[in-house]
């Protein structure tokens, strides 16, 4: 084995050497390749610097300033961060957002997974798959407006059904208890199809021979789902989870259309609060501070998720 490995390494080295020689930039034919390479990556690089790197660095700088947008920023050190720690509305908004994320992730992942498995097992019809993804294609504002009409406690079709069953309507978007669960339901409805299709694609990568082996070993459907399907889907589920968590933390349009953060801040998610501070009250410095805090939280959460779920590894190897 050692000999084989050594031979392999030597072979690789010689390939690399040959390879380097083959694209030697000093040869007359490739003398200008470096310049051309820079030119070709320039659009992406400029886009990255102008639309990502500079705004991020500028945002970090502004979070240390008092910036009302129409007058130059004034450096205030850690004042905004001290204010952030004492801002009850910020912490309450963070709590509301985390509650929303939990509901969206738990119900969103479960429903998407079940839908994907059902699709995988029962149909190969592309029309059905197309219909499943339809809510994702609808604009968030349109979905939120339509749902707010359907959930209206006096005139909405959902409450008409509920009233016939229970005799009592539910103030879905107008009560403290129901506001966030209702918004999470709309969000799950909208994103479920997209997530289901991604998971469905993951299911298609699992070789049928694995299930055949499972059946030969006497495993039933539930056991095969738990012991085979779920572990093999882990990288896909990890990706869907990370995307759902980040997307849920950034929820804005559904809240802005349905409740505007009410009643009494019950659905005042962090993005809503940041938007109001920055664009409503022109307090861009403090808005940048809150955005930076959210950015840091998302990085930590995503990192933990990736580590805990070993997202970059697959059990298929």
């Amino acid at each position: 084995m050692a000999i084989t490995a050594s031979r392999g390494t030597r072979a690789a080295k010689s390939t690399r050497i040959r390879g380097r020689g083959a694209i030697n930039s000093h040869s007359p034919a490739h003398r200008h390749d470096g310049r051309l390479a820079w030119v070709l990556i320039a659009p992406a690089l400029v886009g990255f610097v102008v639309f990502f790197l500079y705004p991020t660095l500028r945002g970090i700088y502004l979070s240390f300033t008092d910036f009302k947008v129409l007058t130059p920023p004034t450096f205030t050190g850690f004042d905004n961060f001290v204010r952030l720690f004492g801002d009850q509305v910020f912490w309450s908004s963070l709590g509301v957002t985390v509650y929303f994320v939990l509901l969206s992730v738990v119900f969103g992942m479960t429903i998407s997974l079940v839908t994907a498995v059902v699709l995988h097992r029962l149909t190969s019809n592309t029309v059905v798959r197309g219909i499943i993804i339809l809510p994702f294609l609808i604009s968030g504002v349109v979905a939120a407006t339509t749902w707010s009409w359907m959930l209206d406690s006096q005139l909405g079709v959902v409450n008409m059904l509920i009233e016939q069953l229970t005799g009592e309507p539910i103030l879905f978007l107008g009560s403290r208890a129901w506001a966030i669960p209702s918004i999470a339901m709309i969000s799950v409805w909208k994103s479920m199809g997209y997530n289901a299709i991604i998971i469905f694609a993951g299911l298609q990568t699992i070789p049928p021979t694995i299930y055949e082996a499972g059946r030969i070993d006497g495993a039933n459907e539930v056991q095969m789902f738990r012991r085979l399907t779920l572990p093999l889907l882990r990288p896909i589920l990890a990706m869907v989870l990370v995307l759902t968590v980040i997307g849920s933390f950034q929820v804005f349009d559904i809240v802005a259309v349905t409740t505007k953060g009410g009643p009494a801040n019950a659905s005042n998610v962090l993005q809503m609060y940041i938007y109001d501070k920055a664009f409503g009250q022109f307090d861009f410095g403090y808005g940048a501070t809150m955005s930076l805090a959210l950015f840091a939280m998302l990085i930590i959460i995503t990192f933990l998720q990736m580590r805990l779920m070993r997202a970059s590894e697959s059990d298929t190897n």
Partner: peptide, 19 residues
């Protein structure tokens, strides 16, 4: 009078619907 949040529609629709 309706409670806060009972209607998600505007005042013209509320009057128009007979509610």
């Amino acid at each position: 009078a309706p409670k806060l949040g009972e209607f998600t529609i505007g005042d013209t629709e509320q009057l128009g619907s007979g509610k």
